[in-house]
């Protein structure tokens, strides 16, 4: 009854995907640094800078390393352990139904960029702004197998500012926000930690190797893969929500096909493969015995 299909983990359309190095756009006011790498400071967002509204009856609570202010509309959280902030509306907040800022995603992206820069996020470290459209909808079955559309609507936009230092993307630094037509922030997350200059120097050295005419010598040192895609040099640091000791690496990462599966592998300057998986040992549990 059930068709037997050969399944492997991969995406056929992936052939057209490629990673490209992201070069920051220097401006007159924010020249790209070219000299030696100085300390890369963190940007720390706060509720004082935020346009998120927690609503009435706000109360402050400290839970472990999180400092929360909660109100009738939502919660704003500041994490003292790593400096990240997060703001989330309550499910029943009326602010969730206020239309989004801007008619297009590009307009929303520009507004979010402006909001964070005015709040103090260093503009020269902005690599790019990516956006998403949130959509809801409803459908109805027509023959027990297929369905027809009854209605769909845009719920809002989300814009994500990505970071780069000296042209090297810092993949895990983000400033994310959704803004409504009243100018209020309805969701935000900021994690923009300081970066060790030694890591930036290592990333630049790695980038020089990858872009050199003899890059094949480096690539030849990497473990065998059945196929691979163009990769890029990036800085990775522990994501804001992972409960472990912060860690930062400079790495060349690329998609590789191994055992019929496409995986993202990472290498250091010597060509050694790096493990990177945001482990969370606190959550590990031994598997349970099965019921008979």
């Amino acid at each position: 009854m059930i068709k037997r299909i050969f399944f492997v983990f991969a995406a056929m359309g992936l052939g057209s995907l490629g990673c490209s190095a992201h070069v920051p756009e220097p401006t007159e006011n924010n020249p790209a640094p070219t000299a030696g790498v100085a300390q890369i400071d963190e940007y720390r967002h706060t509720i004082a800078k935020s346009r998120f509204r927690v609503g009435q009856n706000s109360t402050w609570v400290t839970e472990g390393h999180s400092r929360k202010v909660s109100g009738s509309d939502g919660v704003f959280v500041e994490d003292s352990s790593n400096g990240h902030v997060m703001a989330i509306l309550n499910a029943h907040s009326t602010a969730r139904s206020v239309p989004s800022f801007g008619a297009t995603l590009a307009e929303h992206n520009a507004e979010v960029r402006s909001y964070f820069v005015r709040s103090g996020l260093p503009e020269r470290e902005i690599d790019r702004v990516d956006g998403s459209v949130v959509t809801s909808g409803t459908g109805r079955a027509i023959d027990g197998i297929r369905a027809e559309l009854v209605g769909a609507q845009k719920v809002g936009f989300i814009s994500t500012i990505r970071r780069a230092v000296d042209g090297i993307p810092v993949r895990d630094s983000i400033a994310v926000a959704a803004i409504n037509k009243d100018g209020d922030v309805t969701m935000e997350t900021v994690y923009w930690p300081s970066i060790d200059p030694a890591i930036v120097r290592e990333a630049k050295a790695l980038s020089a190797v990858i872009n050199a005419s003899n890059a094949d010598d480096y690539l030849a040192k990497l473990p065998h893969a059945d196929e691979d895609r163009a990769g890029e040099v990036v800085i990775r640091h522990t994501a804001f929500h992972v409960e472990e000791q912060p860690r930062t690496i400079a790495t060349f990462e690329r998609m590789e096909k191994v055992q019929n599966s496409w995986v993202l592998r990472r290498y250091d300057l010597s060509g050694r493969q790096l493990s990177w998986g945001q482990p969370d040992a606190k959550g590990a549990l031994t598997t349970q015995p099965k019921q008979p």
Binding site: V134, G137, T138
Partner: peptide
């Protein structure tokens, strides 16, 4: 029941410019 269905989604690109088919 399963006569009606309802969804919420977002994509990691501009899904207004590159729309998904409806109904989802």
């Amino acid at each position: 029941g399963t006569t009606w269905y309802s969804w919420l989604y977002t994509c990691n690109y501009d899904s207004n410019t590159y729309p998904l088919p409806f109904p989802i």
